[in-house]
Amino acid sequence: MAGAETESQPVALPPGPVGSPAAWTGAEMARRSDWIVHFTAGELAEIDAAIAAHKAAGRAMGEITPETFRLPGLAPRLAAILDELLHGRGFVLLRGFDVASRSIEDAAIGYLGIGAHLGGFRSQNAKGHLLGHVRDLGLDIRDPKVRYYQTNRELEFHTDSCDIVGLLCLRTAKSGGGSRIVSSVTLHDAMLERAPALWRALFNPMPTDRRGEIPPGMLPWFEIPVFNWHKGLLSTIYAGQYIRSAQENFPQARRLTPEERAAIDMLDALAEEFALTMEFRPGDMQFIHNHQILHSRADFEDWPEPERRRHLLRLWLSPPGGRELPPAYAQRYGDITPGNRGGIVVKDTVLHFSLEPA
């Protein structure tokens, strides 16, 4: 079977359940609140001062770094949060940042400043957006170049092409649109226990649609296993929608076996079983460790008035202290050096920050 181990290149498999603090369930986390971190009044004052200093200095958004966006009291707390993201449960919700009384520019500067203390900014699409906008643009999902976050459609559980994914809620929808996350370590351990043959199939490389964002010299799809065991760590990369669309759109891509199809179907079902749902408030910042968390979103009904419509800002971040990734990730990430990896760059990509969805 394509993707199975060979004598010269054995597939690395975990010796058993992975466990660790990263293996949590939604039911467990719903009973806890330690993953919700409230900014203190002093920390919020520091953020305000750093935004004002950034603007007074006439700096561009690309010049925001931990050194230029000084947060002397908050920075140690952000360092502890980064450690929890990379080595603990893998997610956090920061609450209390005021967006209602700020311009979108000031909110973006504050968000980028906090994000800079967690990692370097990475391009989120072929247009080179370093500050992303999650908003319904009224696009047709049947267009192979449209990404689901540009619509009001439900997102299936998936990972993005970076180490840390951040979202800042500016405005909520009229109804729906809740954020859903699930531990991919928990999914791995459940599959190993319940269906070992299907568990094993997820270590086979699977063709995944690039949705038209094709780096020079690459195919319109990449092939990476969903589960990757490397240097004693489990890293998961998954987009079931795009694995399926690669089968539909690219006859040249390897055909999935019935066992592999059943494996991704089971992974989706388990994600529903173990997920945690959180409803964002304006000003909430969610950060997740992409290698051990899958995320999704419920579909939503938006407000008719453009100025009230659901709007999130997004960051893709690469921390210098990130885990080592297996070589297969280079197909999607390009350079896999910690601190300088992830993101989407194609032939004509120009990196920039935009305050408008596009």
Results as ranks from 00 to 15, higher is better:
residue 41 A to M: 12
residue 18 V to E: 03
residue 60 A to G: 13
residue 81 I to V: 15
residue 187 L to C: 13
residue 160 D to M: 02
residue 191 M to Y: 08
residue 318 S to Y: 00
residue 58 G to R: 05
residue 195 A to W: 09
residue 6 T to M: 08
residue 76 P to G: 09
residue 257 T to G: 00
residue 160 D to N: 06
residue 221 W to P: 00
residue 326 P to V: 02
residue 42 G to W: 06
residue 124 Q to K: 05
residue 188 H to W: 03
residue 313 L to D: 03
residue 208 T to N: 04
residue 130 L to S: 06
residue 42 G to S: 09
residue 287 F to H: 02
residue 349 T to A: 02
residue 118 L to V: 04
residue 39 F to G: 02
residue 195 A to L: 09
residue 281 R to F: 15
residue 181 I to E: 04
residue 189 D to L: 01
residue 179 S to M: 06
residue 335 D to E: 02
residue 358 A to N: 15
residue 46 E to D: 01
residue 264 I to H: 04
residue 331 Q to D: 07
residue 122 R to L: 07
residue 121 F to T: 07
residue 333 Y to N: 00
residue 50 A to W: 00
residue 227 F to Q: 01
residue 262 A to E: 09
residue 357 P to R: 00
residue 217 G to V: 08
residue 181 I to Q: 06
residue 122 R to V: 05
residue 241 Q to N: 15
residue 316 W to C: 01
residue 156 E to Y: 15
residue 16 G to L: 06
residue 112 L to H: 02
residue 88 G to F: 04
residue 142 R to N: 15
residue 310 R to V: 01
residue 343 G to M: 01
residue 53 A to I: 08
residue 336 I to W: 04
residue 78 L to G: 03
residue 197 A to P: 08
residue 334 G to Y: 05
residue 150 Q to M: 12
residue 159 T to W: 00
residue 310 R to N: 10
residue 226 V to P: 00
residue 340 N to T: 11
residue 234 L to V: 10
residue 313 L to F: 00
residue 18 V to M: 10
residue 120 G to I: 02
residue 271 A to K: 01
residue 10 P to M: 04
residue 246 A to R: 00
residue 262 A to S: 07
residue 72 P to V: 02
residue 72 P to M: 09
residue 263 A to C: 05
residue 200 R to Y: 00
residue 43 E to A: 09
residue 253 A to M: 01
residue 91 F to Y: 07
residue 356 E to R: 12
residue 308 R to C: 04
residue 244 R to L: 14
residue 9 Q to V: 14
residue 213 E to L: 02
residue 282 P to V: 08
residue 162 C to M: 12
residue 187 L to Q: 11
residue 123 S to G: 02
residue 271 A to H: 00
residue 274 F to Y: 14
residue 221 W to V: 06
residue 336 I to M: 05
residue 248 E to I: 12
residue 103 S to N: 01
residue 21 P to M: 07
residue 186 T to D: 11
residue 213 E to C: 06
residue 253 A to V: 04
residue 48 D to W: 05
residue 299 D to E: 14
residue 221 W to C: 09
residue 237 I to M: 15
residue 303 W to E: 07
residue 34 D to V: 05
residue 64 I to N: 02
residue 99 V to L: 00
residue 243 I to D: 03
residue 124 Q to Y: 08
residue 68 T to C: 03
residue 243 I to M: 12
residue 18 V to I: 13
residue 16 G to P: 08
residue 292 Q to A: 15
residue 164 I to A: 01
residue 143 D to W: 00
residue 202 L to Y: 05
residue 303 W to S: 02
residue 56 A to M: 01
residue 237 I to D: 12
residue 261 R to P: 11
residue 347 K to V: 11
residue 224 I to V: 12
residue 235 S to Y: 11
residue 257 T to W: 02
residue 350 V to F: 10
residue 230 H to Q: 08
residue 156 E to S: 14
residue 224 I to L: 08
residue 313 L to N: 03
residue 106 D to W: 10
residue 24 W to D: 07
residue 223 E to C: 12
residue 36 I to A: 12
residue 239 A to F: 13
residue 20 S to A: 15
residue 187 L to G: 11
residue 323 R to I: 14
residue 344 I to S: 05
residue 309 R to E: 10
residue 189 D to C: 08
residue 33 S to P: 07
residue 171 R to K: 14
residue 191 M to T: 05
residue 141 I to H: 12
residue 126 A to G: 13
residue 137 L to H: 11
residue 119 G to R: 04
residue 28 E to T: 13
residue 74 L to D: 11
residue 61 M to E: 08
residue 292 Q to D: 14
residue 163 D to L: 03
residue 16 G to A: 09
residue 136 D to I: 10
residue 344 I to P: 06
residue 215 P to V: 03
